[in-house]
Design a protein around this nucleic acid. Sequence first.
DNA 1: ACGCTAGACCATGCCCGCAG
DNA 2: CTGCGGGCATGGTCTAGCGT
Length: 477
Amino acid sequence: MHDVCNPSFSEVSRNIILELIAERKAECSWRHFRRAKASTTCETVFAVASVLRIVMLGNVMADEESAQLSSAVARVGLRAAFLDFSIGDLEWAVSEADLFVRLVKALATDSDCIGNGSIATLTLVRYLMAAHDGFPLARNEFRERKRRLEAANGLVNDLCQVADERRAKLDVIGALSCECFGAPLLEHFSLSESLCKLGTPCQGGELKQRTLCLQALAARWERVKKKEVEHSVIWKNLRKFDGVPIEYDRMTQLMESQKRKAFQVCETSPPSVEMAPKKVRKVITIQVKKEIIQKNEAGCRVIDLAQEYGVRHSTISTILAQKEKIMASSSAFKGVACVSGNRRASINEEMEKLLAIWINDRHLKGDITPTGIIMEKARDLSSADEEEEEGRQPIPTTVIKKFLKNWEELQEFVNKNHPEQAEVNRAGDIYSETAMRHFRQLLKKRQRQTTLDNFFQVSAFSKQQKIESSGSVDQLE
DNA sequence: ACGCTAGACCATGCCCGCAG
DNA sequence: CTGCGGGCATGGTCTAGCGT
C-alpha cells in the first residue's frame, strides 16, 4: 500500500489517468477524481482510475487491456492489481468521491459502453457501488460473484442462440446493470451523450442540473422497461443464476412461462440477496389422489406418502381430508388427466360420464364420431347439467311453453294497440332479450335432451334385441 | 387479445399432541 | 425435552370466466 504523500504520485497518476481517459475525451473526470485523491492511497486512486478506464473503454479482461494496465502499474511503481485493492480504501474513496461515483454510474449505464464491455466491468462497478451503497462485499465474496458473473457471460451466449443476439445480450447486461447498481440500464442513451451531459466539469448548480438529468434518465428507463417483458424474465433468471445455477432447459421453460405475464416492477433488493429457484406448482390428478387415499387406508403413513409422491406432508393431509369428495368423484375417461380440484371438474364429471356413454354407444354401433359432434354433444349435456346446478325446482315444460305463448300474445296485443309502438318495441326487445331468452333456451335444451333420451332408449332397446336374438340363435345352435 | 377476478389447491410455516 | 406426525392458516400459482 503506497502513501498518497509520495511526491511523485500526484503528477504520475494524474498523467496516467489522463492518458487512460484521453480516448474518450473525458478529461473532466479527473477533476472529480482529484477531490478524492488528497488523502487516499495510491492503490485506491489507481484502482478507481482503473475502474474508470474499464467503464469507459469497455473490456478490461482483454489481454491488450491487461497489458496496458500492468504497464501503468509498473510505471507508477505500484504492486497492486486492480482486483487487489483494499476494500476499506475503496469504501473511503467512493464515499469521498461521490461525484466520481455518479460519473461511473452514468457511464456504466450507457448501453454502448456496457454493450461492448464485459461482465467484469460490471463486476467492478458493482463492487464500487456495493461499497458506496453500504453493502461492502468481502473479497472472497466479491471474487465468487465475479466468477458467477463470468459464468453468466456464458449464459448470455446461450440466450443469444435462441433470441435476437444483440437484443438478448443487452437485456442480460441490462439486468446485470440493475443488479450492480440497483438502478436500471439507460439503454438508449449513447456514450457521447453521456459524456456530453456528465463528462464536463461538475460545479455548483451544474451538478444539480446533472443530477436532475440522471433522474430524468431513470424516469425514461421506467417507461422503457414497462414495455419489455423479456427484461423481467432475464432479470429474474439471472438473479436465480447468481444464487443457484439453473439448467438452460429450465431457464427457457421459465422464460416461456413468464412471458405470459405482464412485466413486473424491477426488483431493487441488495445484490447480496440470493433468490431461490422458482417453484413449480404440481397438479395431482384424481387417479393419483385415489391411489394416495387407498394407500393411506392400507396403513401407509402420511409422511411416507409425501416422500413417495414428492409432495409436502400437508398436501397429503389435505387430500386425505377431502377423501370422501375425491372418492365420490370419477373420471369417465380412463387415462385422461382429469385435474382434481378444478372447479369445473365437478360440473363436468357428470357431463363426461354421459358423453362417454354416448360415444361408447356410437362405437358399439361402429360409428366414427367426429370431434365437432362430440363437442356439440358435450355442450348440450353441459347445458343440461347447468340447469340442474341451479338447485331450483324444475319448471315443467308445458308451463314454459304456455308462458312463452302468452308472452307472444301479449307482445302482439301491445304492438297492435299501444300508441307509441317504437318505444314499446324497444322496451319489449330488451325484456325479451334479458328475461324471456332464458326460458326459450331452456325449452330448446330440453327438446334436444328428449331427442337424445329417445336415441339412447332406442339404442339400448336395439342392443337388448341383438343380445336376445344372438342368445336365441345360440340356443338354436 | 388482453386484463381482471374468483375459485381451487399446492406449498410453506407454524403449532399441537404424543411417544420415547 | 426432543423428535415425529398431523392439522391449520396463509400465500402463491394456475385456470376459467367475463368484460372491454
